[in-house]
């Protein structure tokens, strides 16, 4: 049993931590979406945070003696600096960009991500095309990154839970439902939109900083437009009207390809099935996403879905079929 567990953790440790990162990245995109702003910029901040951590740990800090791990307080310093840098950049980008709406804002944020990518391809400090590698490791195994990522995720959940019920959260929601009406009630749209945008940027930057260590290397292929679309899919598939949707969507869609890989590896399956599962793993993945959007157009987790857990079910509420997912804390 213990052997099985160690084996499981050494194989899937990386995946489990990746899932928490994806959940937080989805949250970073969900935050501006709370105010009704479709911003795809968070991968850009993720990339920036990663570069800051990668550069600091390889160039700024003294090289580690062999056999020692990267000090965790230094990692926190990197995360802090990444957060500050992303907040400043988000402010600079957010104020002009958030004058745009809908599809135009989405385009502008895609352009922002692209600008950062081209910059990192051309600057010496970002290692140009090859990127920065040999990033020192704060932990010996990948699963230990959970010591950082899990508390981060829990803090995020508590923060989001409080935020959705606070004055700021209600202002966000008012802006999403009807910006004109919200403005008439005295809500400053620019202030709240930029605030949400900055919160998303800070979170993405901090995740990027840890990810740079986690991936061992950082380059211009991280945090590109592809990731923008992927993270958007996390939010849309998970459900874009409650933060639980982003978390579940991020975790589920990150795990799914690897779960399919594991299924294909089960001993004793007929060869044609193993072959199909190995070769067609991503076909099944795409198919499941398509099915998900067809049968859960509002996303897997909706506020109505959550309400069933909030109060004990009354006799009058008809109990529907058993829910597919239970959100985990």
């Amino acid at each position: 049993m213990i052997e099985f567990l160690t084996n499981f953790l050494s194989t899937y440790g990386f995946l489990i931590v990746s899932m928490t990162f994806s959940a937080m990245l989805a949250l970073s995109l969900y935050l501006p979406l709370m105010t009704g702003q479709l911003s795809l910029a968070s991968p850009g901040f993720y990339a920036l945070g990663g570069y800051i951590a990668a550069w600091m740990s390889t160039e700024l800090y003294p090289p580690l003696a062999t056999g020692t791990t990267f000090p965790i307080p230094s990692l926190f310093v990197e995360m802090l600096i990444a957060a500050v840098a992303c907040a400043i950049l988000a402010l600079l980008v957010g104020v002009p960009a958030l004058r745009l709406r809908g599809i135009y804002l989405a385009l502008a944020t895609i352009a922002f991500v692209e600008v950062l990518r081209v910059l990192s391809l051309n600057l010496d400090v970002t290692g140009k095309a090859i990127g920065i590698f040999n990033i020192p490791q704060p932990f010996v195994t990948k699963i230990e990154y959970l010591y950082i990522s899990l508390p981060m995720l829990i803090v995020c959940i508590i923060f989001m839970y409080r935020l959705e019920r606070s004055r700021v959260g209600r202002a966000f929601r008012a802006l999403r439902e009807d910006e004109l009406a919200a403005t008439a009630m005295g809500i400053n749209p620019t202030y709240y939109k930029v605030l949400a945008f900055m919160m998303g940027a800070i979170l993405a930057g901090m995740v990027g900083a840890v990810s740079a260590h986690f991936l061992n290397t950082w380059n211009a292929r991280q945090g590109t437009f592809d990731l923008s679309i992927l993270v958007l899919a996390y939010v849309i598939i998970g459900g874009s009207r409650t933060f639980w949707g982003s978390i579940v969507g991020g975790m589920l869609l990150t795990a799914l390809p690897e779960v399919l890989r594991a299924v294909a590896g089960i001993q004793g399956l007929p060869p044609f099935l193993t072959g199909f599962l190995t070769e067609g793993r991503l076909i099944i993945y795409g198919f499941l996403i398509a099915l998900g959007t067809l049968f859960f157009p509002q996303g897997l987790i909706t506020p109505e879905f959550l309400r069933r857990f909030a109060r004990p079910p009354k006799a009058s509420t008809p109990t529907k079929s058993k829910p597919l997912q239970t959100p985990s804390t």
């Binding site: 899937y12 990386f14 995946l15 990746s18 991936l215 991280q222 890989r261 594991a262 190995t278």
Partner: peptide, 16 residues
């Protein structure tokens, strides 16, 4: 094991 084109995919394939 398929690594796909990204870094995380390569790590997952190697671990498996």
């Amino acid at each position: 094991q398929d690594t796909a084109g990204d870094e995380a995919g390569a790590i997952n394939a190697f671990q498996t």
